[in-house]
Design a protein around this nucleic acid. Structure first.
Lengths: 135, 135
DNA sequence: TATTGACCTTATAGCGACTATATAGTTTTA
DNA sequence: TAAAACTATATAGTCGCTATAAGGTCAATA
């Protein structure tokens, strides 16, 4: 299988595949005589795994870490679970931060209607004076 | 006032100030004979405004846009409000996406306890097989 | 006076995870 | 046979900084 077919079957750009290879996430495939990359089913699985991790918003570094665990299948999976727990707390704190931000923005927005001149705009005034209900 | 003092009074790195200048967000200040930048109170206000926008997670492009509105103070502020409304929807959709992600991660995490070998880890199996309760 | 230290200058590279572009060679199709 | 579709590498761009290198300036100290 060549790179285009792999790309299509997993739903990724060919550039991204070469990028993952350079990053050491996808093992370098064999080559044809003309230099074209040749992939196997294992590559398909591996790439699909990476993409599913990315959907979960795991970083490439975290995916690397998971790969290392997979390479030593008889150790305890505590570290895998810990990685996921850390990631969950990370996502939760992002959510909390964005919710606080939303509140701030909504309250700022409430300080203006559309029928003013920029000079008198409640939103711009709110930012300029720092009336932003911090935290 | 020199760059270090400006930086300290607003709570920003000097590098960041020069960066904003290069981006056209902060007007180029005067210079001393030795080439040192000299700032005024207007720069302090302007920089503080930029920082407050950044706290609201507005992009530099959006801050640029706000600046253009400020430069024409007698037009209607409809566009300012629209910019904020767009930003609020953007933040809200981020929150929604992250909440969905959190659910996915928590359910994945529930598929494993710590007392297994990597080989049998529910988390890794879940990702590998794509049992990720999409959407 | 010499030198140390704190400040300032510019230019350049790095972060993360791609994405886009340029340039060129190869294969497949019409 | 020629065009379209694929492949290859190398390089730069995205965003908002942050870090590093290599140097110039200035005030206080030994």
């Amino acid at each position: 299988m060549r790179i285009g077919q792999l790309a299509q079957s997993v739903g990724v750009d060919t550039q991204t595949i070469r990028f993952y290879e350079r990053q050491g996430l996808l093992p370098p495939p064999g080559r044809q005589e003309n230099g074209y990359r040749v992939y196997t089913e294992k590559h398909v699985e591996r790439l699909a795994f990476i993409r599913r991790c990315r959907i979960l918003d795991l970083s490439l570094a975290e995916i690397h870490e998971l790969k290392r665990y997979q390479d030593d299948p008889h150790q305890s999976c505590t570290a895998v679970n810990a990685l996921l727990d850390d990631h969950i707390s990370h996502v939760r704190s992002q959510i909390t931060a964005l919710q606080a931000l939303e509140k701030q923005l909504v309250s700022l927005r409430a300080s203006c209607n559309d029928d003013r001149e920029v000079e008198a705009c409640g939103v711009l005034a709110g930012i300029s004076e720092g009336n932003m209900h911090q935290q």
